[in-house]
Lab assay of single mutants.
Amino acid sequence: MADQLTEEQIAEFKEAFSLFDKDGDGTITTKELGTVMRSLGQNPTEAELQDMINEVDADGNGTIDFPEFLTMMARKMKDTDSEEEIREAFRVFDKDGNGYISAAELRHVMTNLGEKLTDEEVDEMIREADIDGDGQVNYEEFVQMMTAK
């Protein structure tokens, strides 16, 4: 299944994987998964984290390695993001709930994920998604960005 991913997608997933893999040992533990999910405003229980890991832990060693992570991402993409997942993601970014993602809100979430971005990089990300040019990202623009192939 992971063989249907483009090189660009694999590179993006590698970057995402390293955000989860806090200690850089090449595997994601339940603790690391929990840290990232909490930084995104989720509050999973230990059991939920274990279930999430077990779902993709092909070799049964209790952690997720990069090939397992790729399989999980490929699977998720095949079920292409349901509207509800996209709306949920939008809410994570839209901290003040005004229906727009500002540069400050984007920077806040990315920083929580451990991504240190310059102001230019954040502005560039907003510009790429900002179709109507108002300097922020509304829900429609967010959907376009998330579903762009």
Rank of each mutant, 00 (worst) to 15 (best):
Y139H: 12
E128F: 09
E128M: 15
T111H: 04
S18C: 07
F69K: 04
E83C: 01
D23Q: 05
I126P: 00
A103D: 11
F13M: 00
M52A: 00
E88K: 11
E124C: 15
R107I: 01
K95N: 04
V143C: 08
V36H: 00
M146A: 07
I64G: 08
E85G: 11
M146P: 12
A47N: 05
V143S: 02
T80F: 03
G97S: 11
M52W: 06
E8I: 12
D21K: 02
A148K: 07
K31A: 07
E105T: 15
A103Q: 06
T147S: 12
N98M: 15
T111Q: 05
I126R: 04
N138Y: 15
L49C: 00
A11V: 13
K149Y: 14
T29H: 05
D57K: 09
N98I: 09
Q50C: 06
Q42S: 06
Y139M: 04
K76R: 12
T63A: 11
P44Q: 11
E121W: 01
R91P: 04
D130F: 01
T29C: 04
V92R: 07
D130W: 00
I86A: 09
R87D: 00
L106A: 07
M110G: 05
F13P: 00
D130L: 03
D3G: 11
T29M: 05
T45K: 13
F13G: 15
A129Y: 03
F13Q: 01
M110P: 03
N98L: 07
G62C: 12
E83L: 11
K31F: 07
E48I: 08
M145G: 09
K76Q: 02
D51N: 08
E121T: 01
T30P: 09
M110D: 05
E12C: 15
M145E: 05
M110N: 02
V137L: 03
M37L: 11
G26P: 04
T30V: 03
D119A: 15
E84C: 04
L19A: 14
E115C: 05
E32Y: 01
K116P: 14
Y100C: 11
I64D: 06
L19D: 06
G41F: 15
G41P: 05
D23H: 13
K76M: 03
D23A: 12
K22N: 14
S82R: 12
K22S: 11
L106F: 08
M52P: 11
L49M: 09
D3L: 08
A103R: 13
A11S: 10
E8T: 08
R38H: 02
R91S: 02
F93T: 14
E48K: 07
R107C: 11
M72L: 14
I126F: 09
M73Y: 08
D23Y: 11
A148P: 07
L113I: 11
L19M: 08
D79T: 02
L49S: 10
F66H: 04
R91K: 04
R91V: 05
D25R: 15
N61W: 05
L33C: 00
T35A: 12
F93D: 14
V137R: 06
N112Y: 10
Q144W: 05
E8L: 15
A74W: 06
R107Y: 01
T147Q: 10
T118D: 13
N43K: 10
D59N: 12
R107L: 13
L117N: 02
D123I: 15
V122D: 06
V143M: 14
T80H: 07
K116N: 12
F90R: 01
A74D: 08
Q50R: 14
I86P: 09
E128D: 14
A2Q: 08
F66S: 11
M146G: 14
R75D: 05
R107M: 15
F66E: 00
E140P: 05
D123N: 13
E83K: 11
D81S: 00
H108E: 15
K76I: 10
P44G: 02
Y100S: 07
K22E: 13
E68Y: 05
Y139E: 01
D119S: 14
G62T: 01
N43A: 06
T35H: 04
D79K: 09
P67F: 12
Q4R: 12
F93N: 06
K149R: 12
D130K: 01
E115G: 10
F142T: 07
V56A: 12
M145S: 05
E120N: 11
E85T: 11
N112Q: 09
N43Y: 13
E140T: 05
V36E: 11
G133F: 04
T35Q: 11
M1P: 08
D130T: 02
D51C: 00
L5A: 04
L33A: 14
V109A: 12
T45E: 15
L40M: 14
D65I: 06
T45G: 03
E15N: 02
H108Y: 13
E120P: 15
S39Q: 15
D81T: 09
Y100W: 02
L117Q: 07
A47Q: 05
T118K: 10
I101M: 02
T80Q: 11
G135I: 03
N138R: 02
I64Q: 06
Q136M: 00
T71V: 06
I28G: 01
A74N: 12
F17P: 00
D79V: 09
A2I: 05
S82C: 15
E88H: 05
K31Q: 12
Q50I: 14
M77T: 12
R91C: 02
V92K: 08
I10Q: 07
R75A: 11
I64N: 10
E83H: 13
A129Q: 05
V143K: 15
D130E: 11
E115R: 00
G60L: 05
H108M: 14
K149V: 04
L19W: 14
E124V: 12
L5F: 00
P44S: 11
K78V: 00
K78E: 13
V122L: 09
E105K: 05
D21H: 07
L49D: 04
P44R: 08
D51K: 03
F13K: 00
T29D: 02
I86T: 13
G114W: 06
D23C: 01
A104D: 01
Q50N: 08
D132F: 14
D51R: 05
D3F: 00
G135V: 08
L70Y: 10
L33Q: 00
M125L: 13
R75S: 11
M72Q: 15
D132Q: 04
E55L: 02
A16M: 12
L5C: 05
A89Y: 04
A74S: 11
I126Y: 11
N138G: 08
E105G: 12
D123L: 00
K31N: 11
D119K: 09
E15M: 02
A16N: 00
D65Q: 10
F66K: 06
D94E: 03
S102R: 11
F93Y: 11
T6K: 02
V92D: 04
N61I: 10
V56M: 11
D134S: 03
K116I: 13
H108F: 14
T30I: 13
G41D: 13
D96S: 04
Q136K: 00
H108A: 12
T63I: 13
Q4L: 10
M1I: 09
F142L: 06
V137K: 02
G133I: 00
N54I: 10
T111D: 01
M77Q: 15
A74G: 14
H108K: 06
L117K: 01
